[in-house]
Design a protein around this nucleic acid. Sequence first.
DNA 1: AAAAATAGGGATGACATCATCCCTTTTTTG
DNA 2: CAAAAAAGGGATGATGTCATCCCTATTTTT
Lengths: 209, 209
Amino acid sequence: MFRALVVEDQTLMRLALMNEVQASFEECIVLGAETLNIATAELQNNHFDLVVIDPGLPGFDPTSQGDRVAVVDKIIEASPSAIHVVVTGSDNLCEADGFRQIGAAAYLGKTGLAPGVFRDVLDDISTKGFSLRLSRVVMTKPDYRFSVLTPREQEAIDMMAHREPGVKRKEIFSLMADRLAIDAGSAEKYYKQARAKLMRQGHPLPRGL
Amino acid sequence: MFRALVVEDQTLMRLALMNEVQASFEECIVLGAETLNIATAELQNNHFDLVVIDPGLPGFDPTSQGDRVAVVDKIIEASPSAIHVVVTGSDNLCEADGFRQIGAAAYLGKTGLAPGVFRDVLDDISTKGFSLRLSRVVMTKPDYRFSVLTPREQEAIDMMAHREPGVKRKEIFSLMADRLAIDAGSAEKYYKQARAKLMRQGHPLPRGL
DNA sequence: AAAAATAGGGATGACATCATCCCTTTTTTG
DNA sequence: CAAAAAAGGGATGATGTCATCCCTATTTTT
């Protein structure tokens, strides 16, 4: 059974990261720790295959490079056989190198760290040994979220809304089919159903229909 | 139809906040913006009832108090009729006062901002006019997350794991029943089912069973 | 010893989502 | 024009979760 630990003080982010880890493994146990104390206690008593760390923890100065390295270093030394992924909001190349030198397998900026990216990061690690994803701004339009839509319908709307001009809808349906491992016809159906729901409720649809 | 906008650069956090907003309203549309540019473009073209803002956006100095105020101020001026909630990782009482004075209805620290808290914040706003929740460390034990459990089962395990010594399980079942608006017997069933699943797979259960 | 709490199951219907396949009409494109 | 793309529906079964009610031992309290 794959065991992972997520060390992050921001609750919503911790839960989101735990979700990402869970989504990356068939069967697994994921623990979440808010503080270094909780984390070290767990690391002493149990074995972990993967540890995700945000170095900006309570009780440490987030601007002090020494504090940040100390946090990560302590965790790495307490779990030498695990894969260590550093996640931070204030990322930079210099710090990435530093963490890499003390044994981290990945360094990720929080901006641009979207659902699904974590899986890619793990692929990077197993193929190249290290994964570096610095923060970068990607969005040009906002994301829409409608409470009336099912997850599948929401995804269909999302992908269609981000369609580049000139790209046919059919192509989006194929893409969606690939990503969700379903039939292209089903993807089309979800999109149409979603669209119909929004129209029925008189919603102003995002541009691109 | 209730319309909300979440302005936050960290993708996972933005999605989590959008979820929190959605969970707080029956029917709603929630937009997510990664940058101030996207946000202001939306604010110009559409009306919003609620705007959630993280002042630490790309292109601004997160350590500069002036930059942070400028971001929030620009958004508030662009949507004077909306409720404005400021969410930040580096929160302090002084900044909270500052944002309150320019019209924010809530100031929330990211640490301790857990699922469900947002609803309470909105209650605070409508009753007291302002909600202040500074970051604070709450956890003493880690959270466990098992991929084999359904959400209900996971919640049952969560709540039981955080049971104070001396508290009877029956009481937890009642509490769970209250919080989920279900029967106490059902809550008990979920817990037992979850426990059975974990035992069957040979998982070392968290202390407190 | 009696009462309450806990452990451990089985069976059930309601319900929503997922995924598929089918159909027609209109619009756009080559 | 002909063909492809798109809009707009209806019907279907599989599946999983939710929520409930039922049952019997065993253990712990009182």
